[in-house]
Computed example of a mutant assay.
Amino acid sequence: MSLTERLADFAGAVGGAATNAPDDYPEWSYATYETNMADIRQLWAEIFPKLKRDIEQAAFIDLKLLEAFAAFEAGEKDKGQLAMWDIYNLQVKKLR
Rank of each mutant, 00 (worst) to 15 (best):
M1T: 05
S2P: 13
L3F: 06
L3S: 12
E5H: 03
E5Y: 08
R6E: 11
R6I: 02
L7Y: 07
L7A: 01
D9G: 01
D9Q: 15
F10G: 05
A11N: 06
A11R: 12
A13P: 04
V14A: 03
G15K: 05
G16T: 05
A18D: 11
N20I: 11
N20T: 12
A21W: 08
P22K: 05
D23N: 13
Y25A: 01
E27D: 08
W28E: 13
A31L: 00
A31D: 05
A31S: 09
Y33W: 11
E34R: 08
E34V: 07
E34D: 15
T35G: 06
N36T: 00
N36I: 01
A38I: 04
D39L: 00
D39P: 09
I40C: 05
R41P: 10
R41K: 14
Q42L: 02
Q42Y: 13
Q42D: 11
L43Y: 11
L43H: 07
W44S: 03
W44V: 04
A45G: 13
A45Q: 08
E46G: 08
F48H: 09
F48T: 15
F48S: 12
P49W: 12
L51Y: 03
L51I: 14
R53E: 13
D54T: 01
I55E: 14
E56A: 14
Q57E: 15
A58P: 07
A59R: 15
A59V: 14
F60K: 03
F60D: 11
F60N: 10
D62T: 07
L63M: 14
L63A: 15
K64F: 00
L65H: 01
L66E: 13
L66I: 11
A68C: 02
F69T: 13
A71G: 09
F72M: 07
E73Y: 13
E73Q: 14
E73M: 06
G75I: 13
G75K: 00
G75Y: 02
E76Y: 01
E76S: 12
K77A: 04
K79N: 05
Q81I: 08
A83R: 14
M84C: 14
W85T: 10
W85L: 08
D86S: 10
Y88F: 13
Y88Q: 01
N89W: 11
L90Q: 13
V92N: 01
K94W: 00
K94M: 10
K94N: 14
L95H: 03
R96S: 15
